[in-house]
Structures are given as C-alpha cells and as structure tokens.
Amino acid sequence: MIRFEAVGLHYGRSRAAEPGAEVLRDLSFSIPQGEFRWLLGPSGAGKTSLLRLMYLAIRPTRGRLTVLGTEIQAARRRDLPPLRRRIGVVFQDFRLLPHLSAMDNVALPLRLAGRPEGQIQADVKEMLRWVGLSKKVTARPTELSGGEQQRVAIARAVITRPQLLLADEPTGNLDDEQAERLMQLFHEMNRLGSTVIVATHNDALVARHPAKSIRLSAGRVVNPPAPGRD
C-alpha cells in the first residue's frame, strides 16, 4: 500500500523555498497492494523524483507519505533498510557496482538479505538466463552493452520478489522483443502480488499493455487514477 497525502518535494537545503520551487507539488493519491501503474509524463515532469520518494532515497519536504504500510515521516532512520529490502528498483541509470560481475551484482540483494550462499547461485543463474544473459554471468558492467546492463539491473530488482517493484524507464535500451519479455516478467511479478510501477516515455509499449496510469506534468498529478479508468 502506497499513499501520498499532500506531498511536496524540493531539492536543496533551504526548507523555506517558495512553493514554486517544488519539483513535486500537492501529490495526493494511493495505490493498493498488488496493483500495476504506468507513471507517465514529459521529461522533467518529476517521474524519477516520485519514484525516489517511493524507494526511500529521499524524504518528502512536506505532506505524508506511506510506503508498504510504513509512514515515512515518522520512521526512524534505522527502520528504513528493512523496508528498502522489500522494494526492488530498476534505476534509470542502472546503478550497477562496477567492480562486480553480473552474477555478483544480481546476488547482492540476496546477500544483503542474509540468504544462504548455497541457494543464491542457482537462483541468480536462473534469473540471468531469464533475461538472456546466461553467457555473461562473469562479465563486469563495463564489458556489457547498455541493454545488457539494463537487464542485469532488472534481474537485480526482481531477484528478491519484492513487494514493491519500481522501474524507471526500464526499456530505454531494449529492443521491442526484449521489452515485451520484460513486460511479461513485470506482469508475472504483479500476478504474484507485487505492486509494480513503471515510469516510461514508450507510448507504444503503454498502448500494447493498457493499465491504470499516473500522469505527471510539472510536478503535479494531472489524472489522479480513479478506479476503472485507464
């Protein structure tokens, strides 16, 4: 369950910035657990910022934000890491660890969760096979193409079966066939109970997979998702 109540966000230190300087303004909506949402809007509208709020990379400057049932304002700093481990993120800029192999990058969330090493290997190999990287298990990110890096990032995001899956422009470097495969993966995760939110500019993809959407424009939601609407 995700709930935004009059949430505002501005970057930078000054707390007393005028409302016009806010990157996100007056966000009020909620997404029940297990839903799928597109996150749409022109470049600079605030999609990435909205996702960052949800994956707890930043805290809102005002309003109330609830992620997976935890109210973020009230949460202590040490309560956030366990919450983050229940969230999978495909970053717009991948954020792979450059000195680790594809295998170790994907295994990282499992290791952070304290999964026994014996189980990790098989799961990670299976996941990499699924995203079509069986032959690149030991490759470092610098030895991978943009699309391959993106698929490693996707594998890392879903390997723990997170309750909340956030993807920021996950098809940016993928061809149509890979993009379709990715959507299949996201739908499968969604079917298993994850809330999935995908930010994208890819209108063709959205058209092929109609679902509810949150449309942002200049930091505001322009179509608060009402039930039954597209």
Partner: peptide, 16 residues
C-alpha cells in the same frame, strides 16, 4: 561513495 550509495539503496544497514 557511489558503491556505498547503491548498497545503501538496496537496503544495507549502516552496521553492514
């Protein structure tokens, strides 16, 4: 710095 931020974002505790 970057690697720490990534691992932190993936849910690593300060203690880890």
């Amino acid at each position: 710095r970057e690697a720490i931020e990534i691992v932190h974002g993936l849910g690593a505790t300060d203690g880890y």
